[in-house]
């Protein structure tokens, strides 16, 4: 059974929208895109490297998939993240995409909870990693398919933007399993749902 891990950058007020750049996702008139960049330092890189080393597959929503598919194939050949992401299997959840052309990609168009549960049951002990993909994460949350959250809490409050935990998600208890900090004031927290 493989582990499904949702990893995401969050502000202190829980916003996850467009951490990487101004044009990443401007939906809802969001003007703070790129807010995470000042806080990504060497410590963050090290933690990220370890997490990515254990990743066997990526499970992505349509928007994050398109951002990744446009960027990673063009990354320098010696970029270790690029090598990894370009080679491992990618699963993209979308009802609107016709095809997924990035190397080793598979489209999931329907029966999303069942398909994801099947992915988790494939042999192996590695991690299926969900990054970004807020809407998909909420679907997975609702269907109790998330085994672990890795939340990068950044020292900033935005007051608006899409959140990982939207209002009216079912209340749930979590267990804290790890806590790290970086030199640039980011707290990296790992939680597992306490309902299993």
């Amino acid at each position: 059974m493989r582990k499904l891990v949702v990893g995401t950058f969050l502000t202190l007020d829980g916003v996850m929208q467009a951490p990487g750049g101004p044009q990443e996702d401007t939906e809802g008139g969001f003007k703070h895109g790129g807010w995470q960049m000042p806080y990504f330092d060497e410590d963050s890189g090290e933690i990220m490297n370890k997490n990515i080393a254990a990743t066997e597959a990526l499970l992505l929503g349509r928007k994050t998939y398109q951002i990744f598919a446009a960027y990673w194939p063009t990354a320098p050949a010696d970029d270790p993240f690029g090598q990894k992401f370009n080679s491992i299997p990618k699963y993209v959840v979308s009802t609107t995409l016709d095809k997924a052309e990035w190397n080793n990609s598979t489209l999931i168009r329907s029966n999303i909870p069942e398909e994801v549960a099947r992915l988790k049951q494939q042999p192996g002990s590695g991690i299926i990693s969900v990054t970004g993909s807020g809407k998909l994460a909420q679907t997975l949350m609702k269907h109790n398919l998330i085994d672990e959250y890795v939340l990068w809490i950044n020292p900033i409050v935005l007051g608006s933007g899409k959140r990982l935990f939207e209002n009216e998600v079912a209340p749930s208890n979590l267990k804290l399993v790890d806590s790290k900090t970086t030199g640039s004031s980011v707290v990296v927290l790992t939680y597992q749902p306490d309902n299993k």
Binding site: N167, V169, A170, P171, S172, L176, L189
Partner: peptide
Amino acid sequence: MLTPVVIGA
């Protein structure tokens, strides 16, 4: 003090 619970509202 960040508590390990999602309360939803």
